[in-house]
Structures are given as C-alpha cells and as structure tokens.
C-alpha cells in the first residue's frame, strides 16, 4: 500500500521540474565550481605554462621551452630531494601504518576507559606542527634529549639525530609516529564497520586470534589500508613544515649536507628564496607526475590485495 506513492514521487519530481532542478543544483554547487576554476584548474594550467619560462616575478617571463625540465636531470639537489623524500616515505609510511593499525585494534577492544585512551593516542595529531617540531628538536637533542637518555638506559647506541646526515630522516620518522593519530582513527572507523557476524562465524569455525585478524580483520579493512597508503605517499611529498622548522631550528638549513632536503622544501627554496618561479613550477609538475604514477601503481596493485566484496554498489 505504502510502496506505490514512494516509487511515484521521485519520478514525478524528475518529470515535473528537471530544468529547475538542474538550475538549482548548479546554483548550489557554483561556489565550488568557481573555486575549482580559480584556485585549482587555472593555477594547474598556469603552472604548466610558467614551467616553460624563466621567471623571477620582477621581470617579465621568458619562454624557454623544456629547458627547466632538462635542467632537472642535471640538478644534483633535485635527485637528492627525491632520495630524501623516498627514503622518508619508505620508512615512515609502512611503520606509521602498522603502528596505527595495531593501536586501532587495541582501541577497538571492549574494555573500560576507552574514550580516555583514544583521546591520549589522538591528541598529538592535532597539535601545531611548528610547536611539535620545536619539541622534537629538543627531545632528539643528542646530549640532553630524553630519547637518547632512554636509549642509553636500555643499552642501545645514541644517534646524533638531526645533527648527522645518516639519522636525520629516521629522526623525522620517529616524530611522525607520535602524530599518527589521524590514521589510527581512520583505521578505527574501518574496524568498527566490520560486521560482528563475521567474527562470530570465525569463532564457530574455531579460529584463533591470529586467524581472525588474518582472515577477517585484514581483508575487511583493506580498503581503508589502501586509502591510508595513497594518502601517506601524497603526504610524504607534501612534507614541509617540520622539514622547514627543524632545518631552521637546528641551524642546518635543510639538515646537515642537505640530508633533510625534502622535495617540498626544495621547491619552496627555489620558488621563494631564489625566486625561480619557472623552475619551481617544473618541480611542481614533476612532483605531480611522480605522485600520480605512484598512486596509479598502488591502484593497479590494489586489485591483488584490496577486498571490496562487502560493499554495496552505491
């Protein structure tokens, strides 16, 4: 009885005012369309054009074709910044993801005081990166910092962290673990969406904790894992504030012998310290292509390990 009118309503609506609906729809999304053209699409195209010029903002741009891109191949600092960024991404993304997942599983247990623990684990993620960077320069101070004191207590070697090229990037990685709260909460959301029946079925099949994790939890949250992986890669290439503040704060600029020259930091230096707008734009496009390529790679491989079976089509 109730079904026919419910079915009829949308049809009626579409038939009666399709043009009005289109107009209203575009009216409501118009701020975003304008913003997209002015702040994203326009700059993206402009960036491509600027990347083919020699432009220092003060004199008019000179068209130089692909010279900026050619120059990149011979630019040692470009390769170094790629190396630093990849080194960071290869360490930080897997470590952060694994730790975030383990913490999320801990937070998904049914025990008391959980909101308190959740708050504590998440808190560092929302603190200002500048202040956090200051704090970690001090924590990782080789002589008076607390991390080396702890390492000494348990009999491990005490690195010089930001003051020596070999341990600069690992220093950033340790810092990133402290602020992984957002990833952890995204995992937690994924864990809470896993239907309880699946676990009950697994228990009936006699699965242990490990089997449940391997055959239920991991496949069910693999889309979340995938999302975090892609965002982690993009994030590594946008890693700027900490690199800038710590480089400046330790008086090393971009780390000893540029060992902390992250890609975004190098782009910033070229654009805003040296006013090489053309070259910086070329660096921007190279970054865009690299990130797209990596994302595509992750997307392609995702067919092998991401499980979407539980999702409805809409």
């Amino acid at each position: 009885m109730g079904a026919p009118p419910q079915e009829a309503m949308p049809v009626l609506r579409v038939m009666r005012r399709p043009r009005r609906e289109t107009a209203m729809g575009y009216l409501f999304i118009s701020p975003w369309i304008i913003g997209f053209i002015v702040f994203v699409a326009g700059p993206l195209i402009a960036s491509l054009i600027i990347s083919m010029t020699d432009y220092n903002l003060l004199s008019s741009p000179q068209f130089i074709g692909l010279q900026n891109y050619a120059h990149m191949f011979g630019d040692a600092n470009f390769w170094l910044s790629l190396q630093v960024t990849f080194y960071y991404a290869l360490l930080a993304v897997p470590i952060d993801l694994i730790v975030a997942l383990v913490l999320a599983i801990m937070l998904n247990q049914n025990v008391r005081f959980m909101p308190l623990f959740r708050t504590i684990f998440y808190l560092p993620a929302l603190l200002p990166p500048v202040a956090i960077s200051m704090l970690w320069i001090w924590i990782l101070n080789p002589a008076y910092g607390i991390l080396n004191t702890f390492l000494k207590t348990i009999g491990l070697p005490q690195p010089q962290w930001f003051l020596t090229p070999q341990t600069t990037v690992p220093g950033y990685v340790i810092m990133s673990i402290w602020g992984l709260g957002t990833w952890m909460v995204i995992f937690l959301a994924g864990l809470q969406n896993v239907p309880a029946e699946l676990y009950e079925a697994a228990v009936l099949d006699g699965s242990g904790v490990w089997a449940k994790f391997w055959h239920v939890t991991l496949p069910m949250i693999s889309p979340v894992l995938f999302f975090n992986l892609v965002m982690g890669i993009v994030g590594a290439f946008s890693f700027f504030t900490q690199a800038f503040v710590i480089g400046q704060g330790t008086g090393t600029g971009a780390g000893v012998s540029n060992s902390g020259l992250f890609y975004a930091l190098y782009l910033y230096q070229k654009a805003f310290s040296e006013l090489q707008m053309g070259y910086a734009s070329a660096l921007g496009w190279a970054l865009f292509l690299i990130v797209m390529l990596l994302t595509l790679l992750v997307f392609r491989s995702s067919a092998l390990w991401v499980y979407y079976g539980g999702e409805s089509s809409r």
Binding site: L44, A46, S47, I50, F237, S238, L267, G284
Partner: peptide
Amino acid sequence: VMLATLMVPGQILLVPQFIM
C-alpha cells in the same frame, strides 16, 4: 572531479597561486 582534487599535491599550486 571534486574528490580527485584531494589527490592533487598542494605544492604544485603554490607558485601559480602566489603569482595570482
């Protein structure tokens, strides 16, 4: 398209936006 803009690294927009 809107969701895809989330994947665009902000760094590439830095220079043209600044010039604008």
